[in-house]
Nucleic acid binder design. Structure first.
Lengths: 243, 243
DNA sequence: CGTAGGTTTGACTGATCTCAAGTTTGGTGG
DNA sequence: CCACCAAACTTGAGATCAGTCAAACCTACG
């Protein structure tokens, strides 16, 4: 094992440490996982629906998203991901990909054999707890998204998505939630909220007009977080940031 | 331990056995879990959003659903459940309920201390695998629901929901998928699909008119499964029935 | 400096919602 | 056994949010 390996998983170790108390031995075990590094340009397919998967994919740098499509070709983004996220922990126990994974920006990913991850989970209780807690939070976020697309109107959906992104970004140590650059286009936001890109554009302008946010292309400034929270009917409980 | 205990968890043991190969010792360990039995009338709240939870809830008889609500009171059902389902496995590692659970029909439930379940999962590899596989399939279903409410039109959403219900019901050994009685009202279907009850009613009539299904109040007969599958854009892969 | 992807604008359409009323059904008590 | 009631279901008409189509405008990049 090289020190390069230790460094590679630093962002993952930090994320897992937020989810469960890891001993130094635990952290070392994570850092010593075998893996295959890869970099991918924006819009690269990491996993395609239907794939038989034998490696889990950890995002070390950049942004990615997971999506499903209908038979007639409509795309629904089901989650956005940032550095430190395990993109497909479900492949630990389900070998067939039920959805696709794609990069949003240029990204670095580590491919870890599922067998090695499985062994790690079986042998290290705290690591297991961190990983499964992460998977359960993942599911909680999906539930919130069902609520988001099922019950909220267009403006709220978008505001909610922005709140979640801002907060998760902050939690991952990627900057303040007040001002940030979106890695996704309005079409991506549309696919995540079940709207059209045109309507997303109109609602973003409406949000700016309401004084909820300021915008310059993909740069977003949330002028008034409380206003934003209300606009998006956002309550961070579902992110289970304090387990 | 009494034989009554063994019997109580029979439906759970069968479900877990479908998810992972369990030894007789594994099955016994599940059957020996401590629990508190309860019966609940239709519409009973089993868990409320925000609750601090110390017991997991296993549905042994009847139907239930999980739901979230917006600040202005709109309800989104995020999943339906039938006998054998663990209703809130997320409480194994997340103590705060991020959504509510309610019975659809009269039901019998077993409350199992999360500590006991946690011990079971730590000590029995196959049981652990079955339970986590179930949790991951749960998440896969949430993703499909995001797609369903986000991208499909009203008629397809309802048809998709009916396909899923019919198939899961069959898998659980509760009868044929061709003909069954719905445990939920049209309002429940509306809350699950992000529509209004009135529109659900119209679409159910349209589906009957299209020759996709026959209906007499809550009795449903799927005349032509292939037609139904097409109407709902339904592909069962996401249920991971063959792991 | 040309091009492609992303964003913005406007006019029109339509799926689904809202409101309001009526009907059927299953259960309950007299 | 029947009358009543509440809940669920059904029907109709009008309103609206978001989609569609078409075109123009940026702006980063090769």
């Amino acid at each position: 094992m090289t020190s390069a390996q230790n460094d590679a998983f630093g962002v993952l170790v930090r994320k897992l440490s937020r989810l469960s108390a890891l001993s130094e031995a635990d952290k070392l075990a994570v850092a010593e996982l075998p893996f295959r590094m890869a970099t991918a340009p924006p819009g690269a397919h990491l996993v395609r629906e239907g794939d038989q998967v034998t490696e889990c994919c950890v995002l070390l740098r950049g942004y990615a998203f997971r999506y499903k499509t209908t038979a007639d070709g409509n795309r629904q983004i089901v989650s956005f991901h940032l550095a430190g996220d395990i993109l497909d922990i479900q492949h630990l126990l389900l070998s067939r990909a039920d959805h696709g994974i794609e990069t949003l920006t240029e990204a670095s990913v580590a491919w870890v054999p599922t067998t090695a991850l499985k062994t790690l989970v079986e042998e290290r209780r705290s690591v297991s707890e961190a990983i499964w807690r992460d998977a359960l939070i993942d599911a909680s976020i999906f539930r919130e998204w069902v609520l988001n697309v099922g019950q909220r109107d267009a403006k709220s959906r978008i505001a909610h998505m922005l709140c979640e992104f801002a907060l998760r970004r902050e939690t991952a140590g990627l900057g303040t939630p007040e001002r940030f650059e979106l890695p996704m286009s309005q079409q991506h936001i549309a696919d995540a909220t079940g709207l059209t890109a045109i309507h997303v554009n109109r609602m973003l302008m409406a949000l700016a007009n309401d004084g909820v946010l300021e915008r310059d292309r993909r740069d977003v400034k949330i002028a008034d977080w409380e206003l934003m929270r209300k606009a998006g009917d956002f309550d961070a409980s579902y992110l289970h940031m304090a387990a």
